[in-house]
Design a protein around this nucleic acid. Structure first.
Length: 287
DNA sequence: CTGTTTACCTGGGGGC
DNA sequence: TGCCCCCAGGTAAACA
């Protein structure tokens, strides 16, 4: 599941090769991965050069000349990678950008076809972002802002961290890993978060994401980077996918529950709602 | 407005 | 070998 570290890894991979290359032709094998009509997209991008690559949360932005932007979301199983121009893809390849480069083409592959592209012109970008109501990027959010945003709701922390309008970039895997390392229960009502906990939470978010980026993301099944390489962070997961195994902190068994509609892994001993280190009921002074 | 549930889509795994 | 069923989950839409 591509989350922030996976999307960032792809962005970095593309950024080193894509800018400066020109789109010669767009071949579409499945129209549903394009938000707009296929022929309209083909006509508009043909001949345009890539100028840059950026990211916010799990959204990837491929910048083109003439203030055109291709917004990409990989959802569950989307892959965006460079491949030799002559390489033949399988039935899950839905989009191919034939480029001016003789070295590679840009390929979109997606087994479940949840993800896809939207072509926007400069004037529509703000509308797009406003419509998504994306929160601040998880890599740069500050503790004070995280605290403010958490205290707006009684929903459990798990649901709040997954909510892209609160914080953009965390998905199911990294949310569980962050909560475990921060010693916070996924079931804790976000409104009850103490300031000291928000500080710890923000710090842990940054640490986990940066560590995962260094290791080029987590590959459990489908994820591959822009060069089709697997990530390595799956070897460092503390709780995700480890039901019944020993907690790396206390040795107790990792539990799996359903929270916010998602499979949620955590250690009830290390991640309690009644955490003695957490000031309760607004007792915390200073405010 | 808030919070929860469902649809989208396909492959993989268990049971038989 | 193969059929049935369920599960995985990011987001949007539908729902209470």
């Amino acid at each position: 599941m591509p989350e922030l570290p996976e999307v960032e890894t792809i962005a970095r991979g593309l950024r080193s090769s894509l800018p400066g290359t020109r789109i010669v032709e767009l071949t579409c094998y499945c129209g549903s991965v394009l938000a707009q009509e296929v022929e309209a997209v083909r006509r508009r991008v043909a001949g345009a050069s890539f100028t840059g690559v950026s990211r916010h949360g799990k959204y990837l932005f491929l910048l083109l000349e003439n203030a055109l932007t291709l917004v990409v979301h990989l959802r569950m199983t989307g892959q965006l990678y460079m491949a030799p121009p002559g390489q033949r893809g399988d039935k899950h390849v839905h989009l191919e950008f034939i480029l001016s480069s003789s070295l590679f083409k840009l390929v979109y592959r997606d087994v479940r076809k949840f993800g896809g592209f939207s072509l926007l012109d400069g004037s529509r970008m703000q509308d797009f972002l406003a419509d998504k109501r994306l929160g601040p990027d998880a890599l740069s959010i500050r503790a004070e802002e995280l605290l403010t945003r958490c205290r707006r709701t009684r929903r459990p922390l798990k649901a709040v961290l997954l909510d892209q309008t609160v914080l953009a970039g965390l998905g199911n895997i990294y949310t569980d890993e962050v909560l475990h390392r921060a010693g916070l229960s996924p079931l804790l009502p976000a409104r009850d978060l103490a300031a000291v906990e928000a500080k710890r939470l923000a710090k842990t978010v940054h640490q986990v994401l940066e560590s995962a980026i260094r290791l080029k993301g987590t590959t459990l099944s489908d994820y591959r980077d822009a060069n089709r390489q697997s990530g390595n962070f799956q070897n460092f997961l503390q709780v995700y996918g480890r039901r019944g195994e020993a907690c790396t902190t206390c040795g107790g068994p990792v539990h799996k529950i359903r929270a916010a509609g998602r499979g949620t892994y955590f250690c009830p001993r290390c991640q309690t709602v009644d955490n003695a280190s957490r000031p309760r009921g607004g007792v915390e002074s200073g405010g």
